[in-house]
Design a protein around this nucleic acid. Structure first.
Lengths: 207, 207
DNA sequence: GCAAATTTTGACCGATTGGACAAACGTTAG
DNA sequence: CTAACGTTTGTCCAATCGGTCAAAATTTGC
């Protein structure tokens, strides 16, 4: 599909730029970020950066394309034939781990959605909707089979997204509220325990 | 505290500007918004706008100060002496209503936090933390009294924030995924039913 | 009706923006 | 060594940015 990247240097430098751009875009948004900022973060001059990516939008687009694949991977893994509560538990855990390990990616995505998703709207209405509808059907099947409590699968997925991504997107607020004691590295384990109780206990099938 | 706003015109025009700025800031963020955009949205020239607010930051600051009061009002109303589950239910309902009725305010706040809360950090560590700690203590009291199930009050509050504000901040994604049928005006009632089941059923005291 | 105060505007400023370009520099294959 | 190719940089550009200012237009107090 893509023309092959020729030299080893191009591979490395493009990677370096994308890493720097992730940092800058995720904290300032697209319009709020400048090529100069990204170039400086990547340790190169602006014209040099523009040698690898012709336009600012190209960097953002490349970053977004890569992000979307890995971002939806956890939901894709939600398996029809697994044990329902185990599947949901590990989905929640995986999503929370992504919020912990890839907060910049989460914020990049949040920024894009907040601004009305101008660049990824087709993907939301296409690929994402298809995937969610498919997994909602799986969850509905579990409910019909009496394996988990009946509820709205779509809003269940939204809630899992919201609660887990909250720890990346609103990290500064979470840390400010928890304070230096409770807001340290342990906050993700506390969150994991809480979310498991909230969702898994709540989804225990009613006899 | 403030010097009194003199004329009727100043009152009206300042209000007009703040309304326009809310629209612009909430979708583009602070750095991504321009004075020209706000002026155009307010139907006046840039120098005219700058006659009412000397700097771009002044607009944002005024907007943010107003927001914070009303934004925390629902949590303030959480009453120690009320019935615990009723109190929490109406807190969730109120927060969801705010996401429905004031999505721009929610996005303005989200934008600020996403960018590291550079302008409201003291408020987060001060006023907000105090309020949350206070209400967390109230909730803990309910748990000790056996009125609701035991869990982490801070993360419970985070989850309520995350799930309700999600319907404002990620509105375009929610609507894209739900599609034209389920994504209409009824989505907030569906969300309300789901969240009540998730939180209130989940907090039912264990005998 | 008129003077004083307030409001609005057009023109302008220096700084920053995204991006172009050719020249200089480095690397590598023969 | 050298020619071809890949990389880097300094300089420059038009557009846009936040903000100023004096003059013009309007409103207000008497």
């Amino acid at each position: 599909m893509d023309a092959p990247r020729r030299t080893r240097i191009q591979q490395e430098k493009r990677e370096l730029i994308l890493e720097a751009a992730l940092e800058v875009f995720s904290t300032n948004g697209f319009r709020g970020s400048t090529i100069d900022q990204i170039a400086e973060a990547a340790g190169m001059s602006k014209p040099n950066l523009l040698y690898y990516f012709r336009r600012k939008e190209d960097i953002h687009e490349t970053l977004m394309q890569r992000l979307l694949d890995t971002w939806l991977a956890p939901l894709r893994e939600l398996d029809d034939i697994g044990d329902p509560l185990t599947e949901l538990r590990s989905y929640i855990r995986r999503k929370l781990e992504m919020a912990r390990d890839f907060p910049r990616e989460s914020r990049l995505f949040a920024n894009e959605i907040l601004q009305g998703a101008p660049r990824i709207m087709p993907m939301l209405e296409g690929e994402l909707k298809t995937l969610v509808d498919e997994k909602a059907a799986v969850i509905k099947g579990w409910m019909r089979a009496g394996k988990i409590a009946r509820t709205d699968p779509w809003h269940l997925i939204f809630s899992i997204w919201a609660t887990t991504q909250h720890y990346a997107d609103f990290d500064v607020q979470v840390r400010a509220v928890l304070g230096p004691d409770r807001g340290g590295d342990g906050r993700f384990e506390d969150a994991a325990r809480f979310l498991e109780q909230l969702f898994i206990d709540g989804l225990q099938p009613k006899t």
